[in-house]
């Protein structure tokens, strides 16, 4: 009686129906719209073949946002994961307050990107300026007014927000390392740095793979922090991919073009995701 089809479909129907209506069908419609001149206003949109896609490759603003996003992702990978590994190594030591610190470092991850972006805009513009006055450090002046300071602003917020999350992933992996391995290294006369390089780091490599790909995926999908912190200023030079698609649709009204850009976006994000799956699977076999 339990294993009948009606019961199965009854349990699964609510999930399937909402998923089909909200994700699958719009995704399919969107794919078709990427070959049209849909502008959101006129009732009919015309098929334009690959026009939107060829237009993308001469769209300087899009190419720049692709380049800018890739740069953010690349620097974020390095900084987020180095900070996260250091934090994880620190809070897994036994000392007073290590659990409290674990919770504290993770906290920024829970505050929404929009609030974080605005909060950091205050810190970068007002507080950095005041710090520059006191310390005389010129580089603290005029943050978020140039492409470079906008870039580092986004990076700092990204590291501040994500490193606590990655820290938890590294902690999980560190806890898997049997203490006997480290003790053996110690007996053999390995120093702290040698132990880390030759023992700990190779053993947390699986977490490193996850950390790298999560940093890429998050940097590529970043929207809230971008719109709140710089909104692309100055002159769209700090505009990331998601924000570029958004303004193509809502500021320029080129919905067909925006849809084509999102298809390219999907290909990038999916490639990253699938590569991660393949690499993680291979790592699992090796372990």
């Amino acid at each position: 009686m339990r294993k009948n089809k009606i019961v199965f479909w009854f349990f699964i129907a609510p999930a399937i129906v909402s998923f089909l209506l909200i994700v699958v069908i719009p995704a399919v419609i969107g794919f078709f719209y990427s070959f049209t001149d849909w502008n959101g206003l006129s009732a009919n949109s015309n098929f334009v073949g690959l026009n939107n896609f060829t237009q993308i490759f001469v769209d300087k603003r899009y190419i720049h946002s692709l380049y800018f996003t890739t740069a953010v992702a690349f620097v974020s990978i390095i900084l987020i994961n180095s900070v996260a590994i250091l934090l994880a190594l620190l809070v897994t030591q036994k000392f007073k307050g290590s659990n409290f610190l674990r919770g504290l470092f993770f906290m920024p991850n829970l505050i929404g990107g929009l609030l974080l972006g605005f909060a950091w805009r205050f810190v970068f513009t007002k507080i950095f300026e005041a710090l520059a006055k006191i310390t005389g450090l010129g580089f603290l002046n005029a943050w978020l007014t140039s492409t470079t300071t906008g870039f580092w602003g986004i990076i700092i917020v990204n590291v501040w927000q994500m490193s606590g999350y990655m820290m938890l992933i590294y902690i999980a992996q560190l806890q898997q390392i049997p203490s006997s391995v480290k003790e053996a290294a110690k007996i053999d006369g390995a120093g702290a740095f040698q132990t880390f390089r030759n023992i700990t780091f190779p053993l947390i490599m699986p977490a490193f793979t996850i950390g790298v790909f999560l940093s890429i995926a998050n940097s590529f999908k970043m929207f809230d922090q971008n719109i709140a912190l710089t909104d692309g200023a100055p002159y769209h030079s700090t505009e990331m991919l998601a924000l570029n698609i958004y303004s193509t649709a809502f500021s320029s009204g080129q919905l067909g073009l925006a849809q084509a850009k999102s298809v390219i976006f999907l290909i990038i994000v999916a490639t990253v995701g699938v590569t991660q799956l393949i690499i993680t699977k291979r790592k699992e076999v090796e372990m």
Binding site: V23, A27, I29, G30, Y33, K221, Y246, A249, G273
Partner: peptide, 15 residues
């Protein structure tokens, strides 16, 4: 489907 970014479905969904 978790790989699909929100931007791919946003406009048709709105329509």
């Amino acid at each position: 489907s978790m790989l699909i970014p929100f931007q791919c479905t946003m406009l048709p969904l709105l329509k």
